[in-house]
């Protein structure tokens, strides 16, 4: 898709979004609610029409400002947040429906429904109705229903949002295995960064209708593009630097040049902060929280900036220590930060 834009009245839902998804890739659209990720998914499915931009599936143009391929002809499958199982049809009836509409011969239909129900371990439930199923079972029926017509792309709209934590973890594994075995292209919308990082080949972080960064989970974690992405992914500290270093690693003495006067920003992971260093940056321990395998320290530097660090041993709050930073990732200024000023931002 290129330069997609969608406006709802005055409200800009999506602006200048361009991305290319490879066949067989598992992509997560990640962002806070209202960032435009669901709108993107609905544009892909064809439920919304873009104001600008185009969507291609392979060589076929699906959407542009002039023309639309209707959803029923797009070869896309979707798992809805509410699952959207038809309550008046049985499990088999739900899965069979796309084939029935596409006028597939009935012997072929029976074979494919059986195969796909076996694929999601729901063969025993074929005669049940959606109201008789648990959340996880409904989820699997919804998946089977979109698999049965062998779509080119499967769209998933926060599919785990309505499940409890335990079931979430097992469905996460299920999706991962499923993707590995079928090799279907999947686009997965979520607001949970852990879920996105755990599942996707690549994650698209979105904010306020714009694509911020589109990269592998590792790159996102270690090399967030700007302050907003760093803050959203979390688990680290954003610090002010004396010199701009956007998009590069700083190590050694370069990494120690923090100053609340600096306009440039950097991102420090707690595992890269070493405490108890003689001659290091002077810092005071503000809080020390026990997290089982380690202690998490909140440190305050002399110039007022804060840092998060790990420590094997507890350190009483109020105690002083010397800090060294092993490596630091330079950030571009986030949009909201252009105005500057507000210091002491810390995430994680």
């Amino acid at each position: 898709m290129t330069a997609l834009a969608k406006h709802f009245g005055q409200h800009v839902a999506l602006e200048g979004l361009s991305m290319t998804i490879e066949p067989g890739e598992f992509v997560a659209l990640l962002g806070p609610s209202g960032c435009g990720k669901s709108t993107t998914l609905r544009l892909l499915a064809g439920f919304e029409t873009p104001d600008h931009g185009e969507i291609y599936l392979g060589d076929q143009r699906l959407s542009s400002a002039q023309m639309q391929v209707p959803p029923e002809q797009r070869r896309m499958g979707m798992v809805f947040q509410s699952y959207a199982l038809w309550p008046h049809l049985s499990v088999a009836g739900n899965v069979d429906y796309p084939l029935r509409v596409q006028k597939v011969a009935s012997s072929e239909r029976r074979r494919r429904v059986e195969a796909v129900l076996a694929r999601v371990d729901m063969t025993a439930m074929a005669g049940r109705y959606p109201r008789e199923l648990s959340g996880g079972q409904r989820q699997r029926v919804a998946l089977a229903r979109c698999l049965v017509s062998q779509p080119a792309v499967i769209l998933l709209d926060e599919p785990l949002a309505n499940l409890d934590r335990h079931l979430r973890a097992s469905m996460e594994d299920y999706f991962r295995d499923f993707h590995r075995e079928t090799g279907t292209t999947m686009v997965y919308v979520t607001h949970d960064q852990d879920e996105a990082m755990a599942l996707a080949d690549r994650v698209a972080v979105m904010q306020a209708g714009r694509l911020k960064q589109f990269a592998t989970p590792e790159t996102l974690y270690h090399q967030p593009v700007d302050v907003d992405v760093a803050r959203f992914i979390g688990q680290g500290s954003i610090v002010h630097l004396t010199r701009a270093a956007a998009g590069e690693w700083l190590t050694g003495s370069e990494a120690q040049r923090l100053s609340d006067q600096g306009r440039a920003r950097g991102f420090v992971r707690p595992q890269h902060v070493v405490t108890g260093v003689e001659g290091g940056l002077p810092a005071q321990v503000e809080r020390c929280i026990f997290r089982g395998e380690r202690h998490v320290l909140s440190l305050r530097l002399a110039d007022g900036q804060s840092l998060t660090a790990y420590s094997a041993a507890a350190q009483p709050s109020g105690s002083r220590t010397g800090v060294a930073i092993e490596r630091l990732w330079g950030l571009e200024a986030g949009e909201r930060e252009v105005k500057g000023a507000d210091a002491r931002a810390s995430a994680g």
Binding site: A45, G46, F47, P70, P71, E72, Q73, R74, M76, G77, M78, F80, Q81, S82, Y83, A84, L85, W86, Y97, P98, V101, Q102, R145, C146, S149, P151
Partner: peptide, 12 residues
């Protein structure tokens, strides 16, 4: 979603 699911299934 019930209707959108049917659209994606190909129903007019």
């Amino acid at each position: 979603g019930l209707e959108e699911a049917a659209r994606l299934a190909g129903a007019g």
